[in-house]
C-alpha cells in the first residue's frame, strides 16, 4: 500500500518508479507510452513524443492548460483514438494491436470518470452502477453483491434507490466513481472529475480517489485544480502544447 507520506523519491521516467519501501521487486507498469504522437486528420498536432509510465499503485496528476493534449492522452488510453506514432501499452496490451472486438474487454479493466458524470438520468444510482456489469453480460447473481460493494466504498449505499437528478453534484460523481470501480479495475482514469464541483465537494471526491488508490488501484487524474495538486505533493505530469514539460513530485506549478 502506498500512502501520502513519506513522499516518494523524484521520478525518473526512463527507469520507472523506485520500488515502494519494503515490497522488494519493482512494480510492473500499468501503462506505458513510448514516443507517442497524435496528429488529427485535420492536421492539428495534439501530442508529440510522449514518454510516460505509471507503475501499479501510483496516483498521478495530469495537468496543463486547455488544449495541451490532456483529453487526447486519456482518449488514447481507452483506445477511443489510436496514436499516429509510438505505442500505448495498457495492462500489458499494446493497444494498436488489440483488435476492435477485444476493445470492450480492455475497457472493462479501466475505470473512467468524467467531469460531467455521464450518468443515465432514468436509472437509479444502483442501476447506473449495475449498468456497467449488465452491458458486459455479467450474470445477474454476481451483479448485486458487486454493486453493493462499490456503493459502500463511495459511501452511497443509503442513496442506492434514488435517481441521479435528485442527488447533489458530489453524490452524482461518487455514483460515477462507483460505476468505474464495479469492474474492479487496476487503473482509474479521471478526466477533470472535480471540474463541476465546489471546493469542499471537490476535496471529498479527491479523498475518495485517494482511498481507492490506497486499495491498490492506480489513478491517473487530469485536473485544473491547482490547490488540490499543490497540497497533495503527488507525482505531477504537466503537458504543454502536446509535450510533457514536467514529470516530478510537486505542485501544480513549476517550483524552481
Amino acid at each position: 500500500m502506498t500512502s501520502a507520506s513519506p513522499p516518494p523519491p523524484a521520478y525518473d521516467p526512463a527507469r520507472g518508479r523506485e520500488p515502494a519501501a519494503g515490497t522488494g521487486a519493482a512494480p510492473r507498469p500499468v501503462l506505458t507510452l513510448r514516443g507517442v504522437g497524435k496528429t488529427y486528420p485535420n492536421g492539428k498536432v495534439a501530442l508529440r513524443d510522449i514518454e510516460l509510465s505509471l507503475a501499479e499503485g501510483e496516483f498521478v496528476f495530469l495537468v496543463g492548460p486547455s488544449g495541451a493534449g490532456k483529453s487526447t492522452l486519456l482518449r488514447l488510453l481507452i483506445r477511443d483514438e489510436l496514436p499516429t506514432s509510438g505505442e500505448v501499452i495498457v495492462d500489458g496490451a499494446d493497444l494498436a494491436r488489440v483488435p476492435r472486438r477485444r476493445v470492450p474487454e480492455l475497457r472493462r479493466r479501466i475505470g473512467i470518470v468524467f467531469q460531467d458524470f455521464k450518468l443515465l438520468p432514468a436509472r437509479t444510482v444502483r442501476d447506473n452502477v449495475a449498468f456497467a456489469l449488465e452491458v458486459t453480460g455479467t450474470p445477474r447473481g454476481r451483479i448485486r453483491p458487486a454493486v453493493d460493494r462499490a456503493l459502500a466504498v463511495v459511501g452511497l449505499a443509503a442513496a442506492a434507490d434514488q435517481l441521479p437528478t435528485t442527488l447533489s453534484g458530489g453524490e452524482q460523481q461518487r455514483t460515477a466513481i462507483a460505476r468505474a470501480l464495479v469492474h474492479e479495475p487496476r487503473l482509474i482514469i479521471a478526466d477533470e472529475p472535480t471540474g463541476n464541483l465546489d471546493p469542499l465537494i471537490s476535496w471529498e471526491i479527491i479523498q475518495l480517489l485517494l482511498r481507492i488508490n490506497e486499495l491498490g488501484v492506480t489513478v491517473l487524474m487530469a485536473t485544473h485544480n491547482a490547490e488540490v495538486v499543490t497540497s497533495l505533493r503527488r507525482r505531477v505530469v504537466a503537458l504543454e502544447e502536446g509535450r510533457i514539460v514536467r514529470d516530478e513530485v510537486g505542485g501544480y506549478h513549476r517550483e524552481d
Binding site: 481507452i78 476492435r100 472486438r101 470492450p104 474487454e105 480492455l106 475497457r107 472493462r108 473512467i112 455521464k118 450518468l119 443515465l120 449498468f131 456497467a132 452491458v135 458486459t136 453480460g137 460505476r179 469492474h183
Partner: peptide, 17 residues
C-alpha cells in the same frame, strides 16, 4: 447517443450496443 457512449466506455461490446 449518450447512452451509447456510456455503454462503450464501460466496456459493452459493439454487438451488445
Amino acid at each position: 447517443r449518450e447512452e451509447i457512449e456510456i455503454m462503450r466506455l464501460v466496456g459493452a461490446s459493439d454487438a451488445f450496443i
